[in-house]
């Protein structure tokens, strides 16, 4: 076995998430066209690229929202593509959405408690036969939820319907709800989109703090300054392919990336591109239609 092969297999062992040659065709159009990437434990990996690059579709493929046309997804060494879409969250892989999707007519607390894994009270048999076990577990879940509500400063809205929250509070609730699943890896889809500068700093603080506690992140973000600040590594996509990968500064100055954002011969400094909800909505609809 060559030294190089050994090194890469060691890297693969450390990789929490491995995507290999992922392809997704919509009709004849390749939204994701042979993407491979690794996310290692404890990393924050930024995923950038202009609109239509296939970033959100890639998220949907990784979380099994959409079936792959070809390729493979491994999480914690286990191949997961082709498995049911509720599996990733159970293994510790959870995502948030570009346009927040809270359970509007459930309270904030209910939103959080719902997401806790392994609840005996989610079975009718246990409800009937072991109500005390259900109650005891429920108490623990509530404590964990209250802890997260304190952490995210959402205690005041604990018993309000999530549909009444402000945009910023929804972002926090979505992140807290994802944490309730006890994830190893969080996929954040444009956490900073449509967020005011103060809240941006706050969200950034949460991401960095959670990383200190051992969380791993893969983050789609259009705010390039933000992504450069938090990422250990950046992957740039355009037209369904990975066009550049490496340390943030290197990717930022990669001519291929500059071209992708500004077109060939554009100015050197890549400007943040307006994320614009319509593309995201179209993808969501695709997800619905295929789900």
């Amino acid at each position: 076995m060559s030294a190089e092969g050994k090194e890469s297999s060691e890297a693969e062992e450390r990789a929490l998430l491995r995507v290999r040659e992922a392809r997704k065709l919509f009709g004849g159009f390749a939204a994701v066209d042979g993407v491979s990437l690794d996310v290692r434990e404890g990393e924050i990996v930024g995923l950038i690229g202009p609109n239509g690059a296939g970033k959100t579709t890639l998220f949907s493929l990784i979380t099994l929202f959409l079936p792959l046309t070809s390729g493979a997804v491994y999480f914690r060494g286990q191949r997961i593509d082709g498995r049911p879409p509720y599996l990733p969250a159970r293994l510790g892989l959870v995502r948030t959405f570009q346009i927040t999707r809270v359970f509007a007519r459930m309270t904030v607390l209910e939103n959080l408690m719902f997401a806790a894994p392994g609840q005996p009270g989610e079975s009718l048999a246990e409800l009937a036969l072991a109500p005390r076990r259900v109650r005891a577990h429920e108490r623990r879940v509530r404590e964990r939820a209250d802890e997260l509500l304190r952490y995210f400063n959402l205690e005041r809205v604990r018993d309000q319907y999530a549909g009444t929250l402000s945009g910023g509070q929804r972002k926090l609730l979505e992140m807290a709800r994802a944490l309730m699943t006890e994830p190893k890896l969080m996929l954040l889809d444009e956490p900073m989109a449509g967020v005011n500068p103060t809240l941006k700093e706050e969200l950034l603080g949460y991401v960095l703090d959670l990383r200190r506690q051992g969380m791993t992140f893969l983050v789609i973000e259009h705010d390039l300054d933000m992504i450069m600040r938090i990422s250990d590594r950046v992957v740039a996509m355009a037209e369904g392919r990975v066009i550049s990968e490496g340390p943030p500064e290197a990717v930022r100055q990669d001519p291929a990336v500059v071209d992708a954002y500004l077109g060939p011969g554009g100015q050197a400094r890549a400007a943040p591109v307006d994320p614009g909800p319509p593309a995201g909505r179209a993808l969501r609809e695709e997800g619905r239609a295929h789900g």
Binding site: T63, F65, A89, R101, R105, M106, F114, G291
Partner: peptide, 14 residues
């Protein structure tokens, strides 16, 4: 209730 509100998210949460 979560199914009523958004079943895709319910699945995404496991």
């Amino acid at each position: 209730k979560a199914i009523r509100e958004d079943q895709e998210v319910a699945v995404a949460l496991g």
